[in-house]
């Protein structure tokens, strides 16, 4: 138990370090990419090259990914600030976003499935 907790802490620190590095690189190189996504790509490179082993991050990584949805609750609460806009044209905006989401899901889902169906596995 204590050992797991210890692993979560130091592995999170490693993940945080790569996140900060990603953020720094994006700003320094003026790349149109959020720091967290850059950090993810950077960590992928570190894993592929074997500099970081999966065992170095899998305890904290597994825990954070298991509860990935949690982080979007405090962010979504921010929607509260748009009360007036929602009251005025919320239904129209909701309809627009629903249509656009459905189109995107449909196109990507069917395109990938169609292309995969044809390629030999």
């Amino acid at each position: 138990m204590l050992k797991t907790l210890f692993a979560i802490v130091w592995q999170s620190a490693l993940l945080w370090l790569v996140f900060r590095l990603g953020t720094f690189l994006v700003q320094a190189l003026h790349v149109a990419l959020p720091g967290n996504v850059a950090g993810m790509l950077l960590m992928f490179l570190l894993l592929v090259t074997g500099i970081v082993k999966p065992a170095h991050i899998e305890v904290a990584g597994g825990f954070l990914l298991k509860h990935f949805a949690f982080f979007f609750i405090p962010i979504s609460v921010g929607l509260m600030a748009f009360g007036p806009l929602v009251r005025q044209s919320g239904v129209a905006l909701l309809a627009i976003l629903v249509v656009a989401a459905a189109v995107g899901v449909l196109v990507t889902g069917l395109a990938v499935q169609a292309l995969n169906g044809r390629s030999p596995r």
């Binding site: 999170s12 993940l15 945080w16 790569v18 996140f19 900060r20 990603g22 953020t23 720091g35 967290n36 996504v37 950090g39 993810m40 790509l41 950077l42 960590m43 992928f44 570190l46 894993l47 592929v48 999966p54 991050i57 899998e58 904290a60 990584g61 597994g62 954070l64 990914l65 990935f68 949690f70 982080f71 609750i73 405090p74 962010i75």
Partner: peptide
């Protein structure tokens, strides 16, 4: 509460690698 969202996104490299 969102402090660990950055590190969690970096952790997505793990399933990506697998």
């Amino acid at each position: 509460m969102t402090f660990l969202l950055g590190p969690a996104t970096v952790a997505l490299a793990l399933p990506l690698y697998n």
